[in-house]
């Protein structure tokens, strides 16, 4: 039986790992390759690197980070952030990443999902969706630019469209939960997971090991992603997995 995946996420800026609290203030949390190795040893199933570099230099640094991680580790990883073209995808995948994650670029140019899927295969193309509850429309709305700009799209409809266009996986971040450490957004994750045929990674809100059990069972997530609780050693991947096993969730 397929296991549920625990995915630490590393936000990388100019080659260093940082993590935002609700996408605003940033704290420095270390070297990406060191952290990646630590997570691999703890039993992480995959890693996500989000490149939040603003500069061209920073982006070039990211390619080296990808190469180094691929050289040293035998687990799969995804790279997102600043991927706007087939050429960007090619550069990151050739450097050894297994998947690329598209967010704002996919919303601005949905054709990019299809092109990427046709060229590299759907399994390489993750579409990242930042969603926030919107009372005025009575559902979750999509945001871009790290959660700063609202878009005229409902999250569920966008997830379906992304999959129809060739996305092989959805990385779903709840803006309402992110950084709050009060648990993942079960309602949002369940709604998206039931709406699409591809795996869904839940993100945003992990505060303790029990939150993972809830998102897998009640939220129907296929994988769960967290950053700060792992980076600041509030819990470990091993501890989360031990907890999941005890609760009867199938993990590696």
């Amino acid at each position: 039986m397929l296991t549920k995946r625990i995915i630490p996420c590393l936000d990388v800026k100019e080659g260093r790992v940082v993590k935002g609290i609700q996408f605003l203030s940033l704290r420095d949390a270390g070297d990406p390759v060191e952290l990646a190795r630590m997570y691999d040893e703890q039993g992480a199933d995959e890693l996500v690197f989000l490149d939040i570099s603003a500069s061209h230099e920073g982006r070039k640094t990211m390619v080296h980070v990808v190469e180094e991680v691929a050289s040293e580790l035998a687990i799969p990883f995804t790279v997102g952030g600043g991927i706007n073209s087939l050429e960007d995808m090619r550069r990151i995948l050739r450097a050894g990443a297994d998947k690329v994650s598209l967010n704002t670029a996919a919303l601005l140019n949905p054709e990019l999902i299809t092109e990427g899927a046709e060229y590299f295969g759907s399994q390489c193309i993750v579409v990242a969706i930042d969603a926030k509850w919107d009372e005025s429309i009575g559902t979750w709305r999509v945001y871009t630019h790290g959660g700063r700009k609202p878009v005229d799209k409902e999250a569920i409809a966008w997830a379906k469209e992304a999959v129809e266009r060739g996305a092989g996986e959805i990385l779903l971040t709840s803006m309402d939960s992110d950084g709050e450490k009060q648990g993942f957004n079960v309602a949002l994750t369940k709604a998206i997971s039931e709406a699409v045929s591809v795996p869904v990674i839940a993100s945003g809100g992990a505060g303790r090991a029990g939150d993972f059990t809830e998102i897998f069972i009640a939220g129907k997530a296929d994988a769960a992603l967290a950053a700060s609780i792992f980076h600041y050693k509030e819990t470990s991947v091993a501890e989360v997995k031990a907890h999941l096993k005890k609760e009867g969730v199938n993990v590696r």
Partner: peptide
Amino acid sequence: GIDQDGQTYKVPHMGWNR
């Protein structure tokens, strides 16, 4: 993408399996 009971399941088969 549809199991024996007619329920849908996720494709691709993605992740760690024994």
